[in-house]
Amino acid sequence: MGTLGSALAQALGLLANPTPELLAIIWRTLNISGGALMLAALFGLPIGAAVALWRFPLRGVLAATLNALMGLPPVVAGLFLYVILSRSGPLGFMGLLYTPSAMVIAQFVLALPLVAALSSSAIKAVDPSIRLAARTLGATPAQATLAVIKEARFGILSALMAAFGRVMAEVGAVLIVGGNIAGYTRVMTTTIALETDKGDFSLALALGLILLLISMAVNMSVHYFQGRAHVERIA
């Protein structure tokens, strides 16, 4: 109890008066996960829309694969990327292992199936009569598709937030490919793991509280956007 109490008090003190180190770790975390999310959105949203709206060969296989990959264990993703990015691996010449870029790639790999699969089901859930109505009102097929995607915007947004929540709170993959290098690849989750090992609970707890707050805010917004999507569908 003594440990917990004093560590908690110190953690709160740290939150009230954050050190540059603490702020740098938070900023780095948001950078890396934000970058990964942007990449995942860039590739995942078109894939999700294509799976939802078009008929093409192996579409079922792609949809099933995306769904299965949503459960890809982060450490396994980290392991594969490590072997690929290692200097003795196929992409070793790029020198990406133990850099923030490697962490962005790892989180991108984890976020992509989530963004694609969830946005795909959001687009699929749009009332088919909207496409019909758009076509009747003289829209070209492309315009009708855009109208459908616009209807699904809250579902897509909640897919993005869910992916952000997953990658930001993840520790296994970024620890393997980032190496938890101080001031360079050390993010919130890996700092928490390290500080707990070292027995310095105050920084770990302070970061833990912030991580908790961010992921709760992210999940609240997922909930909110899903609610909005539902309301729009009924209205």
Partner: peptide
């Protein structure tokens, strides 16, 4: 989100 990679890449 758009600004982030721009900050991230020079760091890398």
């Amino acid at each position: 989100l758009i600004c982030l990679p721009l900050i991230c890449l020079p760091a890398a």
